[in-house]
Amino acid sequence: MRFGMDPKSGKLALGSWDIPMPRSRVGRIAIGTGLITGGTLGFLPILGFWMLPLGIIVLSHDLHFVRRRRRRATIWWQRRRQKPNG
């Protein structure tokens, strides 16, 4: 499974899906910010909490502090999943 921005094609890879993204940095930041804003309103119909992680993935391509936080969360999640029960 692939997740994140593909630097060669400029598309957002979500598993087997490839979503085209704007080539401009400002466009990607606007889309990421919009997704996070819409995700905070996830209790409304149509909008959903699924937009939060998607916005973070989009923003992590251009903003180093978001990328750092996303990597830390990914490492934490992987270690948590690999921890033996007992």
Rank of each mutant, 00 (worst) to 15 (best):
G10M: 05
K11A: 13
K11N: 15
K11V: 03
K11F: 02
K11T: 14
K11H: 15
L12Y: 06
L12C: 09
A13W: 00
A13L: 14
A13F: 00
A13D: 04
L14T: 00
L14F: 08
L14N: 03
G15I: 05
G15Y: 12
G15F: 10
G15H: 11
G15M: 05
S16M: 09
S16I: 09
S16T: 11
W17D: 14
W17I: 13
W17A: 15
W17K: 12
W17C: 03
W17P: 00
D18Q: 14
D18P: 00
D18T: 11
D18F: 13
I19M: 14
I19Q: 08
I19D: 05
I19F: 14
P20F: 02
P20M: 06
P20Q: 03
P20S: 05
M21P: 11
P22H: 01
P22W: 01
P22T: 01
S24P: 09
S24V: 04
R25S: 12
R25A: 09
R25Q: 13
R25T: 15
R25M: 10
R25F: 04
R25E: 14
V26M: 10
V26W: 05
V26K: 11
V26I: 12
V26S: 11
V26H: 03
G27F: 08
G27C: 12
G27P: 13
G27E: 05
R28P: 07
R28T: 04
R28D: 04
I29C: 10
I29S: 03
A30K: 08
I31M: 14
I31Y: 01
I31V: 14
I31L: 15
G32H: 03
G32E: 03
G32K: 00
G32R: 01
G32Q: 04
G32I: 10
G32Y: 02
T33D: 10
T33F: 10
T33L: 14
T33C: 11
G34H: 08
L35Q: 06
L35H: 00
L35R: 00
T37L: 15
T37N: 09
T37R: 02
T37M: 13
G38E: 05
G38Q: 06
G38S: 11
G39T: 02
G39R: 02
G39S: 08
T40P: 01
L41M: 15
L41N: 09
L41S: 07
L41V: 01
L41F: 11
G42H: 01
G42N: 01
G42A: 04
F43K: 06
F43P: 00
F43I: 13
L44I: 09
L44T: 10
P45V: 06
P45C: 03
P45F: 03
P45N: 07
P45R: 12
I46R: 12
I46M: 13
I46N: 09
I46D: 10
I46E: 09
I46A: 12
I46T: 15
G48K: 04
G48V: 03
G48A: 05
G48I: 04
G48H: 07
G48D: 11
